[in-house]
Design a protein around this nucleic acid. Structure first.
Lengths: 133, 133
DNA sequence: CAGTATCCGGGCGGATACTG
DNA sequence: CAGTATCCGCCCGGATACTG
């Protein structure tokens, strides 16, 4: 029970815990999820608005991403029976708490991005540059 | 400049910021990275030890994962020129700060995992169950 | 022991065409 | 407008065999 470390990684960090974190990370670690929930963080958007807001995403991928978010309970999907159909997407409470929990990681990402890019570049130029084709 | 929200998601959260977060998330959102750095969080391990510690990982994937972590500057690789070769892997300072920044997300993951699983199950049973093969 | 080389299946994700 | 259906290339990741 004794608090294991002062810098406080997550408690225990045994394999079991790691796998649980991994499960969640896999939900949002794909190519588009973060971009989508980022757009929904403080407003409701329709399908088309999201499509325009997230540059480069295809209809297919936007649909898949939203379906998964809905399935996991992070986003609600509301269909309005109007003549041109209208579907609204909103973050749930759960989705908002996730975004909250991403704050620290986001700061880290923004703060250390350049450092990582630099390190990577150095690594690449120093290596024997085996043709990894 | 005014602080945008009291619950504090990450500041701004425009597409640019989101993409930077995504870049980092992609580094650790894959199948094995979290498990590997989780094992390294408070100790140095050799290749074989890691291989045994992370259940189910193949040699190939462990090597790839470690190479990427090394390339990004999150892990150091130390080769000891001994008769049976020995290679040690350790988290760098940068790697440790990443683990720190993962704390909130880890707590969220552990705390809401069951909730997500339940929601998912409900979604699956209610849906028309279109054969998605 | 600590890798590399090769082969391979499956799934992610893009492009395009079609629909209620 | 908000999707679905289909096709397809690419890369992730597992299995196996080989090496300094």
């Amino acid at each position: 029970m004794a608090a294991p470390s002062s810098t406080s990684l997550w408690p225990e960090a045994d394999e079991e815990q790691c796998r649980q974190v991994l499960q969640i990370l896999s939900l949002i670690g794909d190519k588009w999820t973060i971009l989508v929930i980022g757009q929904l963080r403080d407003r409701t958007l329709r399908f088309g608005e999201l499509h325009r807001a997230v540059t480069g995403i295809s209809q297919r991928m936007l649909t898949r991403t939203l379906r998964q978010l809905e399935r996991d309970g992070l986003v609600t999907r509301t269909v309005h029976a109007s003549v041109p159909p209208r579907v609204d997407y909103t973050l749930t409470e759960l989705g908002m708490t996730l975004l909250d929990s991403l704050t620290a990681l986001s700061r880290w990402a923004i703060g250390h991005r350049q450092e990582i890019i630099d390190h990577r570049h150095r690594y690449d130029t120093v290596q024997p540059s085996q043709a990894r084709s």
